[in-house]
Amino acid sequence: MLATLALDAGRAISHVDLADELWCGQPLGNVRNALQAQATRVRRVLDGKTGQGPGLTVLRAVGNGYLLDIPPEHVDGNRFLDLAARGAALLHCDADRALELLQEALRLWRGPALLDAGDGLRCRSAATLFDERRLTVWEDIVSARLAVGDNRQAIADLSQLVAHHPLHERFYEQLMLALYRVGRHSDALDLFHRLRARLDEELGLEPSDRLKHRYAEILSQDPRLESTAAVWSQQVGQRIAAY
């Protein structure tokens, strides 16, 4: 219940929507009583954390629902999304500051998003959004490192990211560029072939045209790979397509 209300902090959620989220369509004898019991438990926890007395809790009953009466920016999930957006906006003009903001965003994480928040549609959809945005933040962090010339730390980050996300092509593309820049040309090319074999074996697919283009650049030792433009040239097109 707390997670559901926090996702819409400052806005009321109806009894019907809350019940559907908490019990996923399971039949209830008395929805209002069930929600009141949950609200009492939440208030007990919140009052203990904030030191507020009875009647001053941030969890409020309003009309035919409940709301968490706090500013949206006080919710870590919203803070994460805000920091991620601010960092992404600075990538091309101030990579160092972008890196600070993006790392601050990741420090808010304590594990998988909304891990114990139940199976309701609101929380599961939000968890998917947060998890996908975290991957994009990692892409942006690596891009910032590559932009400022920190190729070795980029390799260290990407080696772990590729291990945890073995089919995420953007991480492979970034790792190929970082390896090339530190003189590991054969490793960069081998990485492409390993991904190509894995995609074919598991999905019956070929690498994207974007990744093939990066492979061709490395194969020909294109001097543009050493420029900052190489970090952004394909990412910009990818972002435009995504939106």
Rank of each mutant, 00 (worst) to 15 (best):
D131N: 10
E100G: 05
L56I: 00
G204H: 13
C93Q: 14
A117W: 03
H164V: 09
T136M: 09
A144Q: 08
A113F: 02
A154E: 03
L158A: 08
E139Q: 13
H185P: 00
R152V: 10
E104K: 15
D187P: 01
G10T: 10
E21V: 07
N64D: 15
L189Q: 12
H213T: 14
V75D: 04
I240G: 00
R122P: 00
G29R: 15
R43I: 02
L211A: 09
G120F: 02
L167V: 09
M176F: 02
V62F: 02
C93N: 12
N78W: 07
V42G: 03
Y66M: 06
E226F: 12
Q26H: 11
R133D: 01
V142A: 09
R32Y: 04
A89R: 14
L5T: 08
V45M: 06
R86Q: 15
L167F: 13
G65E: 04
P166A: 06
A127N: 11
G29S: 10
R198K: 13
F192T: 09
Q36A: 12
D69C: 05
L83A: 13
L195R: 07
V31W: 01
Y172S: 05
Q174H: 12
A241N: 08
L81R: 10
D140V: 01
M1C: 03
Q221Y: 02
Y172F: 13
D150R: 13
L46Q: 07
P71K: 11
R122C: 01
Q52A: 08
I155S: 02
G77Y: 11
H165S: 05
L90T: 08
G204P: 09
G55P: 07
W232K: 08
D119Y: 05
C123A: 13
L99Q: 11
R60G: 00
R43F: 00
L28T: 10
V16W: 04
D187Y: 02
W109T: 14
A12G: 02
R44C: 00
Q36T: 12
L108A: 04
A197P: 01
A88N: 11
R198W: 00
L121C: 05
R152T: 14
A197R: 14
S186E: 11
H165V: 01
M1V: 09
R79F: 00
E73F: 10
D8I: 01
H193A: 09
G53V: 06
L91K: 11
V42T: 14
V231R: 14
A156R: 15
L46D: 04
L81E: 13
N30W: 03
E73P: 05
K49R: 15
T128H: 10
W109F: 08
K49I: 13
A197C: 00
G10I: 03
R110N: 14
A37N: 14
G87C: 05
L67S: 04
L90W: 05
S233Y: 03
D76H: 11
R122N: 03
D8E: 04
G183I: 09
V31K: 13
Q103L: 12
I141F: 01
V231Q: 09
R97Q: 13
L91M: 12
E169C: 03
D150L: 06
G25V: 08
P72M: 01
R32F: 00
V182L: 00
E217Y: 02
G149L: 04
L81K: 15
D96R: 15
A156K: 13
R124H: 05
G55L: 03
L101C: 04
R145Q: 14
N78T: 11
Q103W: 03
G48T: 09
V231E: 04
F192H: 15
